[in-house]
């Protein structure tokens, strides 16, 4: 930057004379699904599961928005995940102000910035307090442990049931392998398959499916026990961010896309309170969104 030679004034003056005449700007075509309300971009839902994404990350934020009580949010699922911020969904599209519609096409927020946007919209909200909507600080701290359990063991257990794509499909669509997700999810990270005491670099990931399933079983039992006959988890009087997270995982496991996940589903169906709770929350979340297409 320091080495950049400044342009002589005479040349600047010459450059500023061109073009001699401007014509009107060529306007871009309208967005495929524009709306006057914010639109949440999610991965596609199943035909049988109204508006609820099949992707657990998207469903988490759908539940977050719905349980937080945000109104007038639309959803669309015609955009591939690579189009999202940082190449992942969900994203929240905020429409431009009416006065800026000619100049702006709105703003796109990544998932991490949705809470900040919600705080701004809702102002003082119980989720925006120090207790984050939980009954006390202990419950808030406990929620962190549940989050770690869900995003660790439960997430990995659901991933391991995903079907492996055929070699042709893998070459054409280049999906990121589930195993690499699992390595990042589990704590402590799983050991490699080979490479100990060897000069050859470590290869693969050694995941004990049986052990993982056992831990998944324990986690589901613990969840069921913690919910008991309460309306919401951790004894809260209203929904909390943890409820949104738990709903996402329970829904994905109870409505499997692939047959391999049947075992994970069966574990939950053994706990009637979890099934009933998921059903209750599902209606709330489904009712909070409507689809928008051009």
């Amino acid at each position: 930057m320091a080495g950049r030679v400044p342009m002589p004034e005479a040349l600047k003056m010459l450059y500023s004379q061109f073009p001699l005449r401007y014509t009107a700007a060529i306007l871009p075509p309208p967005l495929n699904a524009s709306s006057s309300a914010p639109v949440l971009w999610i991965a596609p839902p199943l035909a049988t599961s109204k508006y609820l994404s099949t992707d657990v990350e998207c469903l988490k934020w759908q539940a977050y928005i719905a349980l937080r009580g945000l109104k007038d949010i639309n959803i669309r699922w015609d955009i591939y995940s690579s189009g999202g911020i940082d190449g992942r969904l969900p994203c929240l599209w905020i429409p431009p102000l009416d006065s800026e519609r000619q100049l702006s096409r709105g703003e796109l927020l990544g998932a991490r910035t949705i809470p900040g946007w919600a705080d701004e919209i809702q102002g003082e909200h119980v989720w925006n307090t120090e207790s984050e909507g939980y009954i006390d600080e202990n419950a808030r701290d406990e929620s962190r442990a549940w989050v770690a359990l869900l995003e660790g063991v439960v997430h990995a257990a659901l991933l391991i049931h995903q079907s492996t794509p055929s070699p042709l499909s893998a070459w054409l669509y280049s999906p990121s392998p589930a195993l690499s997700h699992m390595s990042a999810t589990l704590c402590p990270p799983p050991a490699p398959m080979t490479g100990y005491n060897s000069v050859i670099p470590c290869q693969g990931t050694n995941i004990q499916a049986l052990s993982l399933h056992q831990r998944y079983q324990e986690a589901i039992s613990a969840l069921s026990e913690r919910l008991g006959t309460d309306k919401w988890f951790l004894g809260s009087s209203g929904p909390t961010p943890l409820d949104a997270l738990i709903f996402a995982y329970l829904h994905i496991a109870l409505h499997p896309q692939v047959k391999n996940m049947e075992r994970a589903r069966t574990e939950i169906t053994h706990h009637v309170n979890l099934v009933a709770w998921e059903r209750k929350v599902r209606f709330i979340v489904q009712g909070a969104f409507k689809a928008v297409f051009s």
Partner: peptide
Amino acid sequence: DFAPNASISIRESAG
């Protein structure tokens, strides 16, 4: 591989 500052119009074409 969209750039962080990619426009919304071009993101709609993703996939």
